[in-house]
């Protein structure tokens, strides 16, 4: 399996409390992909990330990062992996710059002489260069998040594992981080991105894995997962009831009218046929739209629930 940057087999973590946080998870993250790791709060995403990095020992199962078996190869592999786990964490009484210096000093595989330049470059990429001498204590939530991303970029990485990287960022910051991730991905870096923001997945991810109650319930290229869920049509008409009748007659399912809008799942019916039938039945059509199932619907279909906290 040399085409996978992250691969796990039966990865399981049962805590001493008896709670099974991660249950036989088989991750497969292809090299070069941007892998959206989705799931409601408490579904096991963060524990999975801790397992991947070797912070937590698995109860069962194995995994490989960048082709090497973990945790045995941690010393060789982890320097090539940038990580953000469960939010930023730094020494509050040190400046952002000094915090990065400390992390860089802990890495024995980097060239010490280039530390200053690499730290400045990382700070610059996240827009913190001007605030680098400020104590971390005085950073805003967004600045703290940026510093954590800078720490993941202290050196060129082959794999980034980022747990909710845009958490706490303002819309401008969110955009910046997304374009940064896209740029990194364009240079060949594999990105694993845990998030509960579906729009984020929609915008930058090529692959998706969905966690639910500790299990990986779906995984694959985003387009492929999408295709599994059927597209629907939306008809806006003064005679919504008439439109709904036509949709039902054509064999569309889950037909619903809300105000002046009738919707139905297309199934095998081609949209052109729907328009012709509506006109033929003298239903006044003001608007007609074909919608592929959006990610949220897909998510609900996969997990059987919305974004509630998994118990």
């Amino acid at each position: 399996m040399t085409d996978l940057a992250v691969v796990s087999t039966g990865l399981t973590k049962r805590f001493r409390s008896g709670q099974v946080a991660v249950n036989t998870v088989d991750l497969a993250v292809p090299y070069g992909s941007v892998y959206g790791f989705l799931g409601p709060n408490g579904s096991g995403k963060t524990t999975t990330i801790r397992l991947l990095l070797g912070l937590v020992r698995p109860t069962a199962g194995t995994h490989r990062l960048l082709g090497s078996a973990m945790p045995g190869a941690a010393a060789r592999v982890l320097p090539r992996v940038g990580a953000l786990v469960e939010g930023p964490a730094f020494h509050p009484y040190l400046s952002g710059l000094d915090n990065l210096r400390r992390l860089d000093a802990a890495d024995r595989t980097v060239e010490p002489r280039s530390a200053g330049a690499r730290i400045d470059a990382a700070l610059d990429r996240v827009g913190l260069l001007a605030a680098r001498r400020k104590r971390y204590r005085h950073y805003s939530l967004g600045m703290r998040q940026r510093l954590a991303i800078a720490a993941a970029l202290l050196r060129p990485r082959d794999l980034l594992i980022l747990d909710e990287p845009t958490n706490g960022l303002d819309p401008q910051g969110t955009r910046e981080v997304r374009s940064l991730l896209s740029a990194l991905s364009a240079t060949g870096t594999t990105v694993v991105l845990s998030t509960h923001l579906l729009s984020e997945v929609e915008q930058i991810c090529s692959h998706v894995g969905v966690m639910h109650l500790g299990r990986l319930v779906a995984q694959g290229p985003l387009a492929e997962l999408r295709a599994r869920t059927a597209p629907s049509v939306e008809v806006r008409s003064a005679d919504a009831a008439g439109a709904a009748r036509v949709l039902t007659e054509l064999g569309l399912t889950e037909v619903v009218t809300v105000g002046e809008t009738a919707t139905g799942v297309l199934g095998g019916v081609v949209p052109e046929k729907v328009v012709a039938a509506l006109v033929h039945a003298d239903v006044p059509v003001r608007g007609f739209q074909v919608r592929s199932a959006d990610l949220e619907e897909m998510f609900v279909q996969l997990t059987g629930e919305g974004f509630d906290v998994s118990g």
């Binding site: 990095l53 320097p79 992996v81 990580a83 786990v85 939010g87 964490a89 730094f90 020494h91 992390l103």
Partner: peptide, 10 residues
């Protein structure tokens, strides 16, 4: 929480 980041350096 800096412990997890030190261990991840590694």
């Amino acid at each position: 929480g800096t412990l997890r980041y030190l261990l991840a350096v590694p």
